[in-house]
Amino acid sequence: MAALVLPAGLLVALLLVAPMLLLFRISLNEYSPTEMMREATTAANYLRAVGDPYYRSVLLTTLTVALGSTLLTLGLGFPTAYWLARMESRWKSFATIVVMFPLLVGNVVRAAGWLALLGNGGAINASLLGLGLISAPLPLIYNTGAVVVGIVAVVLPYMVLTLSAVIESIPRNVEEAASNLGAPSWTVFRRVVLPLALPGVAAGSVLVFVLCMNTYASAVLLGGPRFKMMAPAVYDQFVRGNNWPFGAALAFILLTITLVLTVLGSAALGRRYRRPKEELS
């Protein structure tokens, strides 16, 4: 068995673990404007990232946007996933393709589409201006709201597909049993469907949260020049600032926070799921 997983294990080590270790090593180096980077073992980059109010606000924005987008995606995704999972007609495979369709369009192309729709000269503002309903373009773009809309549009399919797979595994007659015993639909959802779908909610939210934390294209194109999230900030350090050690430190902070939050989040949901007595309430 060990011999069988060895090749795959080596590949993972080579492609995933090695670059990470390298990145971590870089994050401990010193930045030098002349030599780019000097060998060192210092925590200075991490201390700067944590201490600098600018990067603290970038991190806070990232967390807020990621959390908000995840919750919004969950709220929009659950009904869609339920509808998809309980669909019986021959349209089901068609509906599944429609849900997956956004995945076929790249992030940048999609963000460009949002620009064309929401921008100052975009379809909405141009129409409203043309109709004389407004005298100046509405600020539909270059704000947090636009970024969240852009992100949710990207990650929604992941949530819907993850959830609908789990909801499909909940026998429909369990819901029927609950309503037969006197539970109105909302209670059936709260007491039966939701608790049984919790593993899906956890998996979908973790997946979506990780994607949101690492948003790049939507943040840059829809957030505008003054809106900053972590991924673009890392990019700026590597490419524009040529400060690899600091960029690596930012990347590691992003990675660690994402990891810790997803582990905590799924553990919390998992515990709830495994404690059936709570349902007696």
């Binding site: 026998p171 007659n173 369990v174 029927e176 049993a177 609950a178 007491r191 039966v192 608790p195 049984l196 799921y273 059936p276 007595k277 349902e279 007696l280």
Partner: peptide, 11 residues
């Protein structure tokens, strides 16, 4: 129900 349809997450 034929398949009992018990709530699997409840005692």
């Amino acid at each position: 129900f034929q398949s009992y349809a018990l709530f699997p997450h409840m005692t």
